[in-house]
Amino acid sequence: MAASLSARPRSAGLLLAGCLLAVALSLPLAVLLGVADVPLADSLATLSGGGSAMARSILLEFRLPRVATGVLAGINLAVSGLLLQRITRNPLADPSILGISQGATLAVAVFLLVTVYSHAPGGNTLPDLPVAWLPAVGLVGGLCAAGLVHLLALRHELGPIRVTLCGVAVGALLHALAMGVIAGWGSTRVEILLEWLAGSLYARSWDHALFLAPFTMAGLALLPVLLRPLDLLGLEAAAARSFGLSYRRAFTAVLCLASGLAASAVGAVGPIAFVGLLVPHLARFVVAGHRALLVPVTVMLGAVVVTAGDLAGRLIGGADEIPIGVVTALLGVPVLILLLRKTP
């Protein structure tokens, strides 16, 4: 490994340092900046234990949990995208290709429909509803979709094309059902759902961060074990198996991990567009030849992209903040096109 690294002009150390710097800049900025102007001195005092009551409330109750949720969701989506792109051997794969986003959407739509009608007639604003359940409901919906795709693919020879086709088909079905539920709803309450659908970090609390943390930690703990199988899963199945990989077991393990990561993130923050698709490509572009750095760089960029995107949405939109999903889509599309042009 050392020999292949030294042959490269760009130093691996410099690259990692650059990514760490991006993390070190974007996270504090996302905490310190926002719609409500908190003086810098007050903010710093708050973070070191003092500060005014207002600053404490804004930073500790709103911004910090929001940034923490964003970091965890960003990591989950980015890693999930990387895993899915590898096992489907499809550069366009992301959590929506397995129907995870659509499954979560349908589950949340049905859940809101049921709870809104069983609730008091006045309760049509988001805080009045049992929104604390949304992440769990989204998670279950996403996992059910991924499980269905996996079962359908397992009936035949489990392989990248089979999984992709089953995923697209299941995703289309679930999307249609979700749209049917939403259209049939015919009420102004649709905006509750629309906000979740756009992918947002608005009003995310420590509960959301705590909900995501086990998934992120499980993912980060399992990644080192999966590094070599992931390399082999990028190869044709017959070749990977003859190199000694238990293909079905490795494929299933990676698929389960990717589904858990994506479904938890989608449940907590909604289907944030393009993060799962874009960040792995961005990471591949950044690491150039250093394949060994791809995973750590993907993790860091996932955290940076979501926090920076959310900060941009808050600063540009002001009081009517732009949902993170809209920001990542608006910025992500040109970046993706640029990357595709630069990669041979």
Partner: peptide
């Protein structure tokens, strides 16, 4: 065993 036309990621190096 070496299959007929095996596929691999295009950005993989020979050594890898």
């Amino acid at each position: 065993y070496l299959p007929q036309h095996p596929a691999a990621p295009e950005d993989m190096t020979v050594e890898h």
